[in-house]
Amino acid sequence: MDATFWAFAGLVIFLAIVAYVKVPAMITGALDKRADQIRNELEEAKKLREEAQQLLAEYQRKRKEAVSEAESILSAAEKEAAVLREEAKTRTEEYVSRRTAMAEQKIQQAESQAINEVCASAVDLAIVAAEKLIGAKIDSKASNGLFKASLGELKSRLN
Rank of each mutant, 00 (worst) to 15 (best):
G145A: 10
G29E: 12
L151Y: 08
C119Y: 01
S72Q: 15
Q53T: 12
V96S: 00
Q53C: 03
K64M: 11
S68K: 13
K148A: 11
G152C: 07
I13T: 04
K62L: 15
E93A: 11
E78S: 11
E44G: 04
E86C: 01
E78Q: 13
K22F: 05
I73E: 09
F147M: 06
A81E: 09
K155D: 15
V12R: 04
A103T: 05
F8V: 05
L55K: 15
K89M: 04
D32S: 09
V21Y: 09
L15Q: 07
V118A: 07
K148G: 06
T90F: 08
A103G: 02
A30D: 05
R85V: 02
K46Q: 14
R61W: 06
I17P: 01
S140I: 06
A70Q: 12
A103E: 09
I17M: 08
E58H: 13
S150I: 13
L84Y: 09
L133W: 02
A103I: 03
V67G: 04
L15T: 07
E43D: 15
V21W: 10
A130V: 02
L48F: 08
Q60V: 05
S150A: 15
A110R: 05
K132N: 04
A142C: 03
A110K: 01
V83P: 00
Q53H: 13
T92S: 08
I115A: 05
A25I: 04
E94Y: 04
E93F: 02
Y95L: 08
D32M: 04
A7C: 02
T100E: 10
I138S: 03
E104M: 02
D36W: 04
